[in-house]
Protein backbone atom coordinates (compact mmCIF):
# COMPACT_ATOMS: atom_id res chain seq x y z
CA UNK A 1 0.00 0.00 0.00
CA UNK A 2 2.78 2.33 0.93
CA UNK A 3 4.42 1.63 -2.38
CA UNK A 4 1.22 2.32 -4.21
CA UNK A 5 0.82 5.58 -2.37
CA UNK A 6 4.35 6.60 -3.06
CA UNK A 7 3.90 5.88 -6.71
CA UNK A 8 0.76 7.93 -7.01
CA UNK A 9 2.37 10.78 -5.12
CA UNK A 10 5.36 10.57 -7.40
CA UNK A 11 3.19 10.65 -10.49
CA UNK A 12 1.29 13.58 -9.07
CA UNK A 13 4.33 15.69 -8.53
CA UNK A 14 6.76 14.51 -11.11
CA UNK A 15 5.35 16.53 -13.97
CA UNK A 16 5.45 19.97 -12.37
CA UNK A 17 8.63 18.85 -10.66
CA UNK A 18 10.49 18.40 -13.91
CA UNK A 19 9.76 21.92 -14.97
CA UNK A 20 10.11 23.72 -11.73
CA UNK A 21 12.60 22.32 -9.31
CA UNK A 22 16.29 22.02 -9.05
CA UNK A 23 17.97 20.40 -6.08
CA UNK A 24 18.96 23.77 -4.59
CA UNK A 25 16.32 26.30 -3.67
CA UNK A 26 17.87 29.66 -4.55
CA UNK A 27 16.95 32.57 -2.33
CA UNK A 28 17.72 36.13 -3.48
CA UNK A 29 20.48 37.66 -1.36
CA UNK A 30 18.39 40.57 -0.12
CA UNK A 31 15.67 38.18 1.02
CA UNK A 32 18.21 35.88 2.64
CA UNK A 33 19.52 38.74 4.73
CA UNK A 34 16.15 39.69 6.19
CA UNK A 35 15.86 39.55 9.94
CA UNK A 36 12.81 38.48 11.88
CA UNK A 37 11.10 41.71 12.99
CA UNK A 38 9.08 40.02 15.74
CA UNK A 39 10.71 39.28 19.05
CA UNK A 40 11.98 35.79 19.78
CA UNK A 41 9.90 35.03 22.86
CA UNK A 42 7.62 32.34 24.26
CA UNK A 43 4.48 34.01 23.06
CA UNK A 44 5.56 34.28 19.44
CA UNK A 45 6.97 30.78 19.36
CA UNK A 46 3.70 29.46 20.74
CA UNK A 47 1.70 31.35 18.13
CA UNK A 48 4.10 30.02 15.50
CA UNK A 49 3.58 26.47 16.68
CA UNK A 50 -0.16 26.76 16.33
CA UNK A 51 0.20 28.14 12.82
CA UNK A 52 2.65 25.38 11.95
CA UNK A 53 0.25 22.74 13.15
CA UNK A 54 -2.56 24.05 10.96
CA UNK A 55 -0.66 24.87 7.80
CA UNK A 56 2.59 22.98 7.64
CA UNK A 57 2.36 19.81 9.70
CA UNK A 58 0.33 17.89 7.15
CA UNK A 59 3.36 17.68 4.87
CA UNK A 60 6.37 18.35 7.08
CA UNK A 61 5.11 16.19 9.93
CA UNK A 62 5.72 16.49 13.65
CA UNK A 63 8.98 18.21 14.54
CA UNK A 64 11.70 15.68 15.20
CA UNK A 65 9.69 12.64 14.19
CA UNK A 66 10.68 12.58 10.53
CA UNK A 67 7.15 11.67 9.53
CA UNK A 68 6.83 14.03 6.60
CA UNK A 69 4.87 12.97 3.54
CA UNK A 70 6.93 11.14 0.90
CA UNK A 71 6.70 13.81 -1.76
CA UNK A 72 9.15 14.80 -4.47
CA UNK A 73 11.20 16.72 -3.41
CA UNK A 74 10.75 15.47 0.16
CA UNK A 75 9.58 18.07 2.69
CA UNK A 76 12.32 18.21 5.34
CA UNK A 77 11.64 17.84 9.04
CA UNK A 78 11.82 21.22 10.80
CA UNK A 79 14.51 19.98 13.17
CA UNK A 80 16.68 18.68 10.35
CA UNK A 81 20.03 20.14 9.42
CA UNK A 82 18.74 20.94 5.95
CA UNK A 83 16.01 23.07 7.45
CA UNK A 84 17.98 24.78 10.16
CA UNK A 85 20.81 25.92 7.89
CA UNK A 86 18.34 28.36 6.35
CA UNK A 87 18.54 31.91 7.56
CA UNK A 88 15.46 33.55 9.01
CA UNK A 89 15.05 35.51 5.81
CA UNK A 90 15.40 32.38 3.66
CA UNK A 91 12.75 30.57 5.66
CA UNK A 92 10.44 33.55 5.34
CA UNK A 93 11.06 33.73 1.60
CA UNK A 94 10.38 30.03 1.09
CA UNK A 95 7.18 30.12 3.12
CA UNK A 96 6.05 33.15 1.15
CA UNK A 97 6.75 31.90 -2.35
CA UNK A 98 6.58 28.12 -2.08
CA UNK A 99 7.66 25.81 -4.87
CA UNK A 100 6.49 22.57 -6.52
CA UNK A 101 4.34 20.78 -3.97
CA UNK A 102 4.75 23.47 -1.32
CA UNK A 103 2.05 26.10 -1.60
CA UNK A 104 2.85 29.81 -1.47
CA UNK A 105 1.51 31.27 1.76
CA UNK A 106 1.76 34.86 0.61
CA UNK A 107 -1.99 35.28 0.48
CA UNK A 108 -3.06 32.72 3.05
CA UNK A 109 -0.91 34.01 5.91
CA UNK A 110 -0.09 37.55 6.93
CA UNK A 111 3.50 38.65 7.07
CA UNK A 112 3.33 38.65 10.84
CA UNK A 113 2.05 35.08 10.89
CA UNK A 114 4.77 33.91 8.55
CA UNK A 115 7.42 35.45 10.78
CA UNK A 116 5.95 33.67 13.77
CA UNK A 117 6.29 30.37 12.00
CA UNK A 118 9.94 31.32 11.40
CA UNK A 119 10.26 32.00 15.13
CA UNK A 120 8.83 28.61 15.90
CA UNK A 121 11.17 26.89 13.48
CA UNK A 122 14.16 28.75 14.83
CA UNK A 123 13.29 27.55 18.33
CA UNK A 124 14.71 24.17 17.26
CA UNK A 125 18.04 25.76 16.32
CA UNK A 126 20.68 24.68 18.83
CA UNK A 127 22.15 28.16 18.48
CA UNK A 128 19.03 29.57 20.08
CA UNK A 129 19.14 27.25 23.08
CA UNK A 130 18.72 29.05 26.34
CA UNK A 131 17.31 32.17 24.72
CA UNK A 132 13.79 31.19 25.70
CA UNK A 133 13.41 31.14 29.45
CA UNK A 134 10.76 28.68 30.46
CA UNK A 135 8.50 30.57 32.78
CA UNK A 136 7.64 28.60 35.86
CA UNK A 137 3.85 28.26 35.83
CA UNK A 138 2.07 29.65 38.85
CA UNK A 139 0.52 27.06 41.12
CA UNK A 140 -3.22 27.49 41.44
CA UNK A 141 -6.32 25.59 42.45
CA UNK A 142 -10.00 25.70 41.60
CA UNK A 143 -13.10 25.14 43.63
CA UNK A 144 -16.68 25.22 42.61
CA UNK A 145 -20.28 24.33 43.23
CA UNK A 146 -23.23 23.98 40.95
CA UNK A 147 -26.81 25.13 41.38
CA UNK A 148 -28.62 22.66 39.19
CA UNK A 149 -32.02 24.38 39.29
CA UNK A 150 -30.74 27.87 38.54
CA UNK A 151 -28.15 26.37 36.15
CA UNK A 152 -25.37 28.44 37.62
CA UNK A 153 -21.82 27.40 38.45
CA UNK A 154 -20.14 29.22 41.31
CA UNK A 155 -16.41 29.00 40.86
CA UNK A 156 -13.42 30.31 42.74
CA UNK A 157 -9.73 30.31 41.96
CA UNK A 158 -6.83 30.57 44.34
CA UNK A 159 -3.12 30.83 43.92
CA UNK A 160 -0.17 29.93 46.07
CA UNK A 161 1.79 33.00 47.09
CA UNK A 162 5.43 33.20 47.99
CA UNK A 163 4.83 32.36 51.65
CA UNK A 164 2.87 29.24 50.77
CA UNK A 165 -0.60 30.54 51.50
CA UNK A 166 -3.61 30.16 49.20
CA UNK A 167 -4.74 33.62 48.05
CA UNK A 168 -7.72 34.50 45.80
CA UNK A 169 -6.77 34.70 42.14
CA UNK A 170 -8.36 37.77 40.60
CA UNK A 171 -9.09 38.45 36.91
CA UNK A 172 -8.18 35.00 35.72
CA UNK A 173 -9.84 33.29 32.77
CA UNK A 174 -11.68 30.07 33.57
CA UNK A 175 -12.52 27.67 30.75
CA UNK A 176 -15.55 25.46 31.15
CA UNK A 177 -15.92 22.40 28.98
CA UNK A 178 -18.00 19.25 28.89
CA UNK A 179 -16.74 15.71 28.47
CA UNK A 180 -17.65 14.14 25.16
CA UNK A 181 -16.87 10.71 23.78
CA UNK A 182 -13.66 11.67 22.03
CA UNK A 183 -12.67 14.94 23.75
CA UNK A 184 -13.94 17.88 25.70
CA UNK A 185 -16.29 20.36 24.14
CA UNK A 186 -15.82 23.99 25.16
CA UNK A 187 -18.95 25.51 26.70
CA UNK A 188 -17.76 28.96 27.64
CA UNK A 189 -15.48 31.15 29.70
CA UNK A 190 -15.75 33.04 32.95
CA UNK A 191 -13.47 35.62 34.53
CA UNK A 192 -12.83 35.78 38.25
CA UNK A 193 -13.67 39.04 39.96
CA UNK A 194 -11.42 40.94 42.34
CA UNK A 195 -11.96 38.43 45.10
CA UNK A 196 -11.23 35.41 42.91
CA UNK A 197 -14.85 34.39 42.45
CA UNK A 198 -16.71 33.79 39.23
CA UNK A 199 -20.18 32.81 38.24
CA UNK A 200 -21.00 30.93 35.09
CA UNK A 201 -24.49 30.83 33.69
CA UNK A 202 -24.87 27.47 32.05
CA UNK A 203 -26.28 27.90 28.52
CA UNK A 204 -29.89 26.75 28.31
CA UNK A 205 -29.63 24.87 25.06
CA UNK A 206 -26.47 22.92 25.89
CA UNK A 207 -27.19 19.22 25.72
CA UNK A 208 -26.21 16.60 28.27
CA UNK A 209 -27.15 12.94 28.07
CA UNK A 210 -30.78 11.80 27.82
CA UNK A 211 -31.32 12.77 31.49
CA UNK A 212 -29.56 16.10 31.10
CA UNK A 213 -26.53 14.91 33.02
CA UNK A 214 -23.18 16.30 32.02
CA UNK A 215 -19.56 15.88 33.14
CA UNK A 216 -17.95 19.31 33.44
CA UNK A 217 -14.37 20.33 33.65
CA UNK A 218 -13.05 23.75 34.54
CA UNK A 219 -9.48 24.75 33.75
CA UNK A 220 -7.26 27.78 34.09
CA UNK A 221 -5.11 29.11 31.28
CA UNK A 222 -1.75 27.63 30.39
CA UNK A 223 0.16 29.99 32.62
CA UNK A 224 -1.03 28.17 35.70
CA UNK A 225 -0.17 24.80 37.01
CA UNK A 226 -3.51 23.67 38.22
CA UNK A 227 -5.48 20.46 38.37
CA UNK A 228 -8.70 20.85 36.44
CA UNK A 229 -11.86 21.05 38.50
CA UNK A 230 -14.00 18.07 37.59
CA UNK A 231 -17.73 18.06 38.30
CA UNK A 232 -19.27 14.82 37.16
CA UNK A 233 -22.92 14.00 36.51
CA UNK A 234 -24.35 17.46 37.03
CA UNK A 235 -28.01 17.60 36.12
CA UNK A 236 -27.61 21.00 34.62
CA UNK A 237 -27.86 20.51 30.86
CA UNK A 238 -30.83 20.08 28.58
CA UNK A 239 -31.70 16.43 28.02
CA UNK A 240 -30.42 15.20 24.68
CA UNK A 241 -33.03 14.20 22.18
CA UNK A 242 -31.72 10.71 21.70
CA UNK A 243 -33.12 9.31 18.53
CA UNK A 244 -34.48 5.80 18.52
CA UNK A 245 -33.92 4.25 15.14
CA UNK A 246 -36.09 1.33 16.11
CA UNK A 247 -39.14 3.27 17.24
CA UNK A 248 -41.13 2.45 14.12
CA UNK A 249 -41.55 -0.70 12.10
CA UNK A 250 -39.48 -0.08 9.01
CA UNK A 251 -38.65 -1.94 5.84
CA UNK A 252 -34.90 -1.95 6.40
CA UNK A 253 -35.17 -3.62 9.75
CA UNK A 254 -35.18 -7.24 10.88
CA UNK A 255 -38.25 -9.48 10.65
CA UNK A 256 -39.43 -8.62 14.15
CA UNK A 257 -39.47 -4.92 13.30
CA UNK A 258 -40.76 -5.14 9.75
CA UNK A 259 -44.15 -3.69 8.92
CA UNK A 260 -47.12 -5.89 9.73
CA UNK A 261 -48.67 -5.49 6.30
CA UNK A 262 -45.58 -6.93 4.69
CA UNK A 263 -45.44 -9.99 6.93
CA UNK A 264 -49.16 -10.60 6.64
CA UNK A 265 -49.14 -10.11 2.88
CA UNK A 266 -46.21 -12.45 2.40
CA UNK A 267 -47.44 -15.17 4.71
CA UNK A 268 -51.03 -14.76 3.53
CA UNK A 269 -50.23 -15.05 -0.15
CA UNK A 270 -47.69 -17.84 0.20
CA UNK A 271 -49.87 -19.72 2.66
CA UNK A 272 -52.90 -19.33 0.42
CA UNK A 273 -51.12 -20.56 -2.68
CA UNK A 274 -49.68 -23.57 -0.88
CA UNK A 275 -53.05 -24.41 0.62
CA UNK A 276 -54.44 -24.59 -2.90
CA UNK A 277 -51.49 -26.71 -4.00
CA UNK A 278 -52.17 -28.95 -1.03
CA UNK A 279 -55.78 -29.22 -2.14
CA UNK A 280 -54.69 -30.23 -5.64
CA UNK A 281 -52.39 -32.90 -4.22
CA UNK A 282 -55.33 -34.11 -2.18
CA UNK A 283 -57.32 -34.41 -5.42
CA UNK A 284 -54.54 -36.53 -6.88
CA UNK A 285 -54.83 -38.85 -3.89
CA UNK A 286 -58.54 -39.02 -4.57
CA UNK A 287 -57.81 -40.06 -8.15
CA UNK A 288 -55.81 -42.96 -6.74
CA UNK A 289 -58.69 -43.85 -4.44
CA UNK A 290 -61.23 -43.64 -7.23
CA UNK A 291 -59.20 -46.15 -9.19
CA UNK A 292 -59.49 -48.75 -6.42
CA UNK A 293 -63.27 -48.90 -6.43
Amino acid sequence: MRKFFFLSAAVLFLLPGLQGFSQVWEVPADQDALKNPSAFNNENVKAGRELYNTHCKSCHGDPGKNNALPLVPPPPDVTSEQMLQNSEGALFYKITTGRVAMPAFETTLTEEQRWRIVSFMKSFDPANEGLLVKEEPVKARLQGAADETAKVLTLSAQTLNASGEWMPLPHADLFISAKRTFGSLAIGQAKTNGSGHAEFKFPEEFKGDWEGLVDLRVTLGEDFSCDPLVMNRLKIAAPADTENLFADRVLWSTNDRTQWWLILAYLGVVGGVWLVIGYVIFQILKIYKAGKE
Binding site: V276, A290, G291
Partner: peptide, 24 residues
Protein backbone atom coordinates in the same frame (compact mmCIF):
# COMPACT_ATOMS: atom_id res chain seq x y z
CA UNK B 1 -50.45 -43.78 -13.28
CA UNK B 2 -51.95 -44.07 -9.79
CA UNK B 3 -54.08 -47.05 -10.69
CA UNK B 4 -55.91 -45.12 -13.37
CA UNK B 5 -59.01 -46.87 -14.56
CA UNK B 6 -60.52 -44.12 -16.60
CA UNK B 7 -63.81 -43.93 -14.76
CA UNK B 8 -65.98 -40.82 -14.74
CA UNK B 9 -64.93 -39.85 -11.21
CA UNK B 10 -61.26 -39.90 -12.12
CA UNK B 11 -61.77 -37.76 -15.22
CA UNK B 12 -63.84 -35.37 -13.17
CA UNK B 13 -61.07 -35.10 -10.56
CA UNK B 14 -58.38 -34.49 -13.18
CA UNK B 15 -60.40 -31.77 -14.87
CA UNK B 16 -61.25 -30.22 -11.53
CA UNK B 17 -57.64 -30.17 -10.30
CA UNK B 18 -56.40 -28.91 -13.66
CA UNK B 19 -58.86 -26.05 -13.59
CA UNK B 20 -57.72 -24.99 -10.15
CA UNK B 21 -54.07 -25.15 -11.16
CA UNK B 22 -54.68 -23.20 -14.35
CA UNK B 23 -56.22 -20.40 -12.38
CA UNK B 24 -53.60 -20.58 -9.63
Amino acid sequence: ALGWKGNEEQYRLVTHAMRILMIL
